[in-house]
Design a protein around this nucleic acid. Sequence first.
DNA 1: ACTGAAATGGTCATCAT
DNA 2: ATGATGACCATTTCAGT
Lengths: 171, 171
Amino acid sequence: MALQSERSLDQTDWKILRELQKDARLSYNELGRRVGLSAPATAERVRKLEDAGIITSYGAQVEVTKLGLPLLVFIQLRCFPDHCLFKTSSAEKFPEILEMYKLSGNYCALLKVALSSMEHLEAFTERLSFYGEQTTNVVTSNLFSQQVIDWEKPEVNLRPSTQQGWDKRKR
Amino acid sequence: MALQSERSLDQTDWKILRELQKDARLSYNELGRRVGLSAPATAERVRKLEDAGIITSYGAQVEVTKLGLPLLVFIQLRCFPDHCLFKTSSAEKFPEILEMYKLSGNYCALLKVALSSMEHLEAFTERLSFYGEQTTNVVTSNLFSQQVIDWEKPEVNLRPSTQQGWDKRKR
DNA sequence: ACTGAAATGGTCATCAT
DNA sequence: ATGATGACCATTTCAGT
């Protein structure tokens, strides 16, 4: 029933998305109060957003620094043709890798990696050297992360092909 | 309540962290069932993890592609000394920027940016050119993201030189 | 989408280890 | 210091409107 397939989101949907991105553990009661809906109606909206694949999951954000991983690095990887990290699907063997992207350009992959120490970094890059050439950059400060997606003109953004740019954001 | 319990995380804490990273909306009842604790005890553990700053927030994960932002790019920025993006604190004016890191190496910053179209990318890089020289790479596929922090051998990975216990503070 | 009732979950005081 | 239990209150869910 959520499949009014290409219905675009209304203001209430966007409010729900904003609130749930900021606090996924809100009760439907409180969430409904904030968006101006009753709890059952709110729950139904959220269920539709989940079914539509717009909300994919709810996750606790953890501070890796406090879990003994004070070092965050980005590694650009140019894979060797015969040992590509993707094709061997060995990424699972590296729990240090938080995110992995395939990129256009000179390097075939970008890795975001959390590490416990310089020794750990050394051991990790050594292990990774089997797969390709690396360029490593250490994060010296994290200016911000996981900004909430919350646009002012969703109806524009939902139809990228037919629009002029969109430069404004809510509030 | 213990102010000085400088203890590190036990297996139950790790189970809680794993479950909450996978589903932040679990009830304490269900979470407690999974980790083998009563609901109040589970709630107390979670509260301590929050107070210790280990769990920083709970967020709904949204699929930016379905919100009209099919283009994900990384931009390396070498700021002009006089117009550094950090010092002018103009990053707020760019809702397209999802994450921003200060990096060691040739480039002073790495931006992760979500965009609605090629035209949008063009307009964005044009606006950003005021701040510094850019190198842009488009993400062609996202191999994985936000891997759950859940080490097989926490006793190894959890001991950097400075293990941080929990500092508790009252709510 | 709202209301109201039944089921479930959260919180607190208390007790036990 | 931490966990369990039970009472009480809040929230979720489902019916009917």
